[in-house]
């Protein structure tokens, strides 16, 4: 554990809790992509099956359980409790275009051919692109609520901080995992446009709206 990874994890946790808070407080999931949330739930489920097979630390297990619980909780709020507020007309990105390539790639570029490892690899690839339906939705509606913008910023920062963590781990532990690094870089690049808008608009107190 190093400071970059800890900050990354906390940023990830903050993002997930912010989203739950927003939905609960406003009693609405308007502006949130159910498809992105579904993809994240698939990601956590595929990756954290190792809760049953390997133990890393209490911190690790607790975080995994929190991420899993929160993502299923988010789906419950979006598709059941506050379903009438879900803006599915604007959530029209085809997620099979993301799931199928991620699955195919996880059979081609993988450390070793075991079910657990392929699932883990699939989750890494899928996570890299899982935000696309949400970004697509923001571009379609042309705006995002401020709290949704904070959520996206925290979520995007998490993988960016992980990149610093990987650089640090490479020099201190000789740790190098090209699958996570390449996917992490793709994931962070997808947020760049959003980061720019967040810094130039939201941080100056304006609402995020596209020109």
């Amino acid at each position: 554990m190093n400071i970059f990874r800890l900050c990354g994890d906390l940023s990830h946790l903050l993002a997930i809790l912010l989203l739950l808070f927003k939905i609960w407080k406003t009693r609405s999931c308007a502006g949130i992509s159910g498809k992105t949330q579904l993809l994240f739930t698939i990601v956590y489920t595929a990756r954290y099956l190792d809760l049953f097979t390997s133990f890393v630390s209490v911190y690790n297990s607790v975080m995994k359980i929190v991420f899993l619980t929160a993502s299923y909780g988010t789906l419950y709020l979006m598709f059941y409790k506050f379903k009438p507020t879900y803006d599915h007309n604007h959530d029209s990105f085809r997620i099979l275009y993301l799931i199928v390539p991620a699955l195919v790639l996880s059979f081609i570029i993988v450390h070793v051919y075991t079910v657990m490892e392929i699932l883990w690899t699939f989750s890494i690839y899928l996570e890299a692109v899982a935000i696309m339906p949400q970004l697509f939705m923001v571009s379609r509606t042309g705006e995002a609520e401020t709290i949704t913008s904070h959520y996206l910023f925290a979520l995007g920062s998490y993988r960016a901080l992980y990149i610093l963590n990987w650089i640090y781990r490479y020099y201190t532990e000789d740790f190098l995992d090209w699958i996570t690094i390449m996917a992490g870089i793709v994931q962070t690049i997808l947020y760049c446009d959003f980061f720019y808008l967040y810094i130039t608009k939201v941080l100056k107190g304006k609402r995020l709206s596209l020109p």
């Binding site: 994890d9 630390s57 690790n60 975080m63 995994k64 075991t114 490892e117 996570t180």
Partner: peptide, 10 residues
């Protein structure tokens, strides 16, 4: 060689 990699990140 046996694959013994444990993914220690989240």
């Amino acid at each position: 060689e046996e694959f013994d990699k444990v993914h220690d990140e989240l």
